[in-house]
Design a protein around this nucleic acid. Structure first.
Lengths: 158, 158
DNA sequence: CGGCATTGAGTTGTGCGCAACTCAATTGCG
DNA sequence: CGCAATTGAGTTGCGCACAACTCAATGCCG
């Protein structure tokens, strides 16, 4: 659509292009995950657990629902993950007194202290990518637009 | 590194920025996956299965190892996935006669025929993103560089 | 030629992501 | 007020990703 008629892409071309972009996004995500796995090993965190900790370090105590909004995750993923963080002694969970459906997650002293060791993580990652801040911001913006467009496109089908 | 000294970013800033870019990449990947899940439902394929089929549609018969190279996946992921594709009647597997360690995957008639129905997938995805070809190519290039940089950075630690 | 390292596929175990579901608490509406 | 609909956590089941492992086939080197 909206392409110049100079080179009409065939269906085959579209399939190949689709494979390339999907593969690129997939591979990039898994490559990032792989690097974080190495870097986070010292902290005893998985990559998704690190993301949850980032949210808690920034916002303090939060109900599970809010964490999910920040990370685009539902309780099916977060409940067991938070249980593992609780078992690791980093997070405490307790039902809200004002709304007993809601469960609040907050950092333990140990969980809060882990932040001091986590500050080196982004530096090591940034060093590995070789991307500068401008590039990171640009990629961030593009991915944000992509996600927004897709999220807007998916629900209508439901 | 290489930043102007006007605003020295604190550790906290780096952690927040890290969370933002990680989240963006993660969310984009999962948003893409979510859209493909919807679109691929008709074909009875998951997103990773679709990627494998794309490889087979393009290259024909391939040993598992080669598929893995294309998709950056190992046998731990591919073996059960291919078994499911085989159970679905789309793929056949047979040990190579010249090297009996190797297993070749090839399309069945049904698997090859599925391509005709798959050609609409990229169009529906592209329509949902609202991205034009130039933008897709640009994103593709950036993600490729990111993956290459990360893959170069990770193995050294092993 | 014999034996050892390497290679390719597969299995096992753990954690994540998501759909579909249950259950209790809360909201809202007649 | 009372009851149905909604909301928030949690559970279950399935598929994917990856580490660590097994096993057989191959390659290599003295």
């Amino acid at each position: 659509m909206t392409e110049k008629p100079t080179e009409p892409l065939t269906d085959q071309d579209f399939l190949r292009l689709d494979g390339q972009i999907c593969f690129a996004l997939n591979a990039a995500t898994r490559a990032v995950g792989g690097l974080y796995r190495v870097v986070l090993k010292d902290l005893g965190l998985t990559y998704p657990q690190y993301l949850v900790m980032l949210v808690l370090w920034e916002h303090g105590e939060l109900p599970v629902k809010q964490i999910g909004r920040h990370l685009r995750l539902d309780s099916g993923t977060l409940s067991p993950l938070l249980k593992r963080l609780e078992a690791a002694g980093l997070v405490a969970r307790e039902r809200s007194t004002e709304d007993e459906r809601s469960v609040h997650a907050r950092l333990t002293a140990e969980g809060a202290a882990l932040r001091d060791r986590a500050v080196e993580v982004p530096r090591r990652i940034a060093a590995a990518t070789g991307f500068d801040l401008a590039e990171i911001h640009d990629l961030h913006a593009r991915l944000g637009r992509l996600t927004a467009a897709l999220d807007a496109a998916v629900p209508p089908e439901a």
